[in-house]
């Protein structure tokens, strides 16, 4: 994630198998292309892991809506990117470092154009203002949140909930779903941040509230929730202060 500003940023590009042909590609050397079968195949957790491993920007390339080989893989990718951007913002990384590009076969511009454009955009963003340690903690928490059941099931069900109906015959408007997603992403991120912090050594609620920059009462609410799910447990009590330690999540 850290980079010297005179070096071009490291970009990883996950590209749909069908998006651009090899003939049409002349790519800057700082852009690494990884072909996947469909851009919707990208696991959100994998994208975050790419950031953790030192990418400065991630570009996802897929096909424009009517062209997806797998009907709506590109739309699934769009939803995932929406959620990932929220997670990145929470983690303190500019959401602009992640971009989804949907192209059509009749596109006049080749891939190199888009690659350069994105590379320059990321370059302008420069270094992340956060320290390395903190960024790693945040991104790991985001990754854990993205690989956990709650966000994934929400992501997988989004289309069903917003376009069709849920089990109770209700159709959720998109804005409502968005607000819901916002809340859940935030809650999940905080929980996994707590989990990350308490993994190293036991923390008290007060310490956690300080580290997270939120009210202790909110932290306590999350901890109650996490204890119920078996993510965290009481380690020991120092004086009158209980200290919590993370449990291994399955």
């Amino acid at each position: 994630m850290r980079m010297e500003s005179y070096n071009p940023p490291k970009i990883v590009c996950f590209m749909c198998n069908w998006a651009f042909c090899e003939e049409e590609m002349r790519v800057p050397y700082n852009v690494n292309i990884i072909r996947v079968i469909c851009v919707g195949r990208m696991d959100p957790a994998l994208v975050l892991e790419t950031f953790i491993n030192g990418a400065d920007g991630v570009l996802l390339v897929g096909c424009k809506p009517p062209d997806c080989h797998f009907v709506d893989g590109n739309l699934h990718a769009e939803r995932a990117v929406k959620m990932l951007k929220k997670l990145l913002a929470l983690a303190g990384l500019e959401p602009e470092r992640l971009k989804l590009l949907l192209t059509s076969p009749m596109e006049d511009k080749g891939f190199s154009h888009y690659a350069k454009e994105f590379s320059e955009e990321v370059w302008k963003l420069g270094d992340s203002p956060l320290g390395k340690e903190e960024l790693l903690a945040n991104l790991t928490a985001a990754k854990d949140a993205a690989s956990a059941f709650r966000l994934r099931v929400l992501l997988g069900r989004e289309e069903e909930l917003t376009e069709f109906m849920n089990a109770y015959g209700e159709k959720i408007p998109e804005e409502e779903f968005d607000a819901l997603l916002d809340d859940i992403v935030r809650a999940e991120f905080i929980r996994y941040k707590i989990h990350y912090l308490t993994r190293v050594k036991p923390h008290s609620v007060k310490e956690l509230a300080e580290a997270l920059g939120i009210k202790p009462s909110a932290v306590l609410r999350h901890i109650t929730n996490m204890r119920r799910k078996g993510m965290i447990a009481l380690d020991h009590v120092e004086g009158y202060t209980p200290l919590y330690k993370a449990l291994e999540v399955r």
């Binding site: 079968i37 990208m42 696991d43 690989s147 994934r152």
Partner: peptide, 14 residues
């Protein structure tokens, strides 16, 4: 199965 992997990318329990 066409092998697109959309399911693998979304399976909540992996």
């Amino acid at each position: 199965c066409k092998g697109c992997g959309l399911c693998a990318a979304r399976c909540p329990e992996k």
